[in-house]
Design a protein around this nucleic acid. Structure first.
Lengths: 217, 217
DNA sequence: CGTGGCTTGTGACTTTGTGCACAAGGTCGA
DNA sequence: TCGACCTTGTGCACAAAGTCACAAGCCACG
């Protein structure tokens, strides 16, 4: 570390996990070294951008050679804070919540499922993926047991804010919101949003631009 | 309108669906008029940004009053190209694919499920939400029947590119990729990516910045 | 019909992100 | 040991996005 680690720009942060995924692949393929040019190709971006991004990590490659894959992977994990697992708690055992809980991809990438909770008593106790749904009242205990933990909101939009408040109260410091609603949290809490319908609408926009749809006959 | 509708910036496009959702809420609440200030509050952004965003639509509000909610909603739908439904076809009937197919939220927001296909014969024929899984070979027919349609890739990363190629060959012009892999398509095709683990890693980064985790004892 | 108050639309500026081009610095072969 | 060849790291110029502040315009009320 160089003492005065520069603040990493948001745009760069958003790309780091992509590099991480690629590096894991490269390690699997026993590739010892990678140049920014190749990395850029794999990530679908510009090589200069890759170099600049990596330079923020204070990670130094070797001129004339490239980056040592193992070392870069180590640095990347360090930077992203994924040297240890981050358990996740899913709130809401509806379609989306159950889907996320079942989605094995999380666990494989360092985000094991710590539990699923739901406010609906008829859902409590039912099996969902590897766990049983627990009541909202268990939230605090669940968080305490696994902290630090990431909370995932998979409820209808109408209750998203309330759920977020409860997550924060229970000690969750990072939240991923899948509900189509604005959620606000104290500044010390990290929050991101994913809205699937929203993505489809963006696609719809760009597609309409290209080829306006006729009224169906 | 100014004849030469300005190109809408990407950043603005990404916010339009958010406004759309809010406007639908406002209509439900029988609120006839909304000011940029209020809209900004509901969307969690700056009021000036709202006004600038809306100005790209050529939609004019009324000074001293605000925007007519019904009219703005109409304009917004027009701009986003969501005046008619966009059917979606899910490729991959694994956990994620089944989850997405079951997720009612899509249909409610104008993206009804047209079908689910999978390359695995043992999955073909099984029920998934409202439909039965069909073989990949049915893709072309399915697309032809529903075009224009959005393709959703919910397969493992390793086959994502191949699936994308098949979707394009079948006539799909917009693709939402959930697989953790880089996918490239011809420039006439719209493509967006959603990677759930990636979002979690970004959260992890910001959280680690605030409060570095200790090694567990 | 005129005036006051409110809200839009936008020009000017700041901040953030991108891409080029090249010097700096390392490797490797002879 | 030296030089040719690569690839990094970064200064700089440009593009995109965000913010501020205010003139222009509209409504309502007297």
């Amino acid at each position: 570390m160089d003492g005065h680690t520069r603040r990493i720009p948001d745009a760069t942060v958003a790309r780091l996990p992509e590099y991480l995924r690629i590096l894991v692949d490269l390690v699997d393929q026993r590739i010892p070294t990678v140049a920014s040019e190749r990395l850029a190709e794999l990530a679908g971006v510009n090589a200069a951008k890759v170099r600049k991004d990596l330079s923020y990590l204070g990670t130094y490659g070797t001129r004339g050679v490239g980056y040592d894959v193992d070392y870069l992977l180590f640095q990347m994990r360090q930077a992203l804070g994924v040297t240890q697992d981050w358990p996740v708690i899913v709130v809401g055992a509806g379609n989306l919540g159950r889907a996320l809980a079942n989605y094995a991809g999380f666990g494989e990438r360092g985000f094991p499922l710590a539990g699923v909770v739901d406010a609906d008593d008829t859902k409590v106790g039912t099996e969902v993926g590897p766990v049983r749904v627990r009541p909202m009242s268990d939230l605090k205990e669940l968080v305490a047991e696994h902290r630090p933990v990431i909370g995932i909101i998979a409820t209808p939009g109408a209750v998203a804010q309330q759920v977020a408040d409860e997550l924060v109260a229970a000690g969750v410091t990072a939240i991923l919101n899948f509900a189509p609603a604005l959620v606000t949290v104290p500044p010390s809490i990290s929050l991101r949003k994913v809205d699937l319908a929203l993505e489809l609408q963006i696609l719809s926009f760009y597609q309409s631009q290209r080829e306006p749809r006729r009224d169906s006959a």
